[in-house]
Simulated assay, not measured.
Amino acid sequence: MTGERRPTRHIVVMGVSGAGKTTVARGISELTGLRFAEADEFHSAANVAQMRAGIPLDDAQRWPWLRALAGWMADRHAEGVSTILTCSALKRSYRDVLRQGPPEVEFLHLDGAAELIQDRLRQRVGHYMPASLFDSQRAILEHLDPDEAGVVLEVAASPADLVAAAISRLDLPLRAAVGGR
């Protein structure tokens, strides 16, 4: 039939800074063809400057950013395009805003030992989010509730293993091989 659209999928890779959201989301995107977006790129210059200065955002500063992310997913849904988006999505209320975009949003929570993630943050270069904000993120983190669609993966695994586990656990189809038989 012509004009029928395949159902779209919208995955938000969530967790504290340094959990590996971007690495895992990009890996999933490459293997599945889901359209990738980095939530950090949706922040206003003022928000970035504030975080760079080591001052956490308050909820009032986050709402417009979260609504923009939900809108981006909704627009892709309207185009028939599935997405994978990185976003800390630390609180249930933040995830509720993201769910106001497309009809369904699934979450992939990358979680793990604070020491491991802090070590990664200390080694990271070129990112505006300083390691000093890690504790504020951990303090507000609300884990997925049983009624929220999603899975939790332990970040101690290698990036390749996390990507493979996410694709399997979320039952995401792999992209057709380009130039294959």
Rank of each mutant, 00 (worst) to 15 (best):
E30N: 11
W72V: 10
P173M: 13
A160E: 15
I28K: 02
S17D: 01
R67A: 11
A165K: 11
R9E: 14
H10Q: 08
L57Y: 10
R169W: 07
E106R: 13
A78G: 15
W65I: 02
R122Y: 02
S82A: 12
V97W: 03
A149C: 11
R62S: 05
G54C: 06
D119I: 01
A89P: 05
D96H: 08
M51W: 04
L31A: 15
L34V: 08
T22V: 03
S136F: 07
D40W: 03
E148P: 05
R181L: 13
R35M: 10
R5M: 02
R62H: 10
S158E: 09
A37H: 14
V13H: 07
V163W: 02
V163Q: 01
I11K: 05
T22D: 04
V81P: 00
T86M: 04
G71M: 02
A114E: 12
A177T: 09
V178E: 11
R124H: 05
E148M: 02
A89E: 11
T23P: 07
G112N: 03
P102T: 06
Q137E: 12
R169L: 13
R122A: 15
D161M: 07
A139K: 11
R5C: 02
H77Y: 06
G33R: 10
L170N: 11
F134H: 14
D96C: 05
P7Q: 03
L116K: 08
N47P: 04
T8I: 05
A131Y: 00
S44P: 01
A74E: 12
R122D: 12
V97G: 01
A68K: 14
G3S: 09
A60M: 06
V125T: 14
R124D: 03
R76H: 13
W72F: 15
R95M: 11
D40P: 04
Q61P: 05
P7A: 15
E41A: 15
P102I: 08
L144Q: 05
R92V: 12
A45D: 15
L153Q: 04
R169M: 13
L174E: 06
G33H: 06
Q50H: 04
A46R: 14
M14Y: 01
H43E: 04
F36A: 08
G15T: 12
E79A: 15
R124E: 10
A114M: 04
R99L: 01
L170F: 07
I140Y: 00
Q123M: 05
W65P: 09
V16S: 04
P64H: 08
A164H: 03
T83P: 03
L34C: 07
K21W: 12
G15F: 02
Q50G: 03
I11G: 03
S29W: 07
H143A: 14
Q61T: 06
G180C: 08
P102G: 08
L162M: 01
A19L: 00
E115Q: 13
L141P: 00
A39Q: 01
T86C: 11
D171F: 06
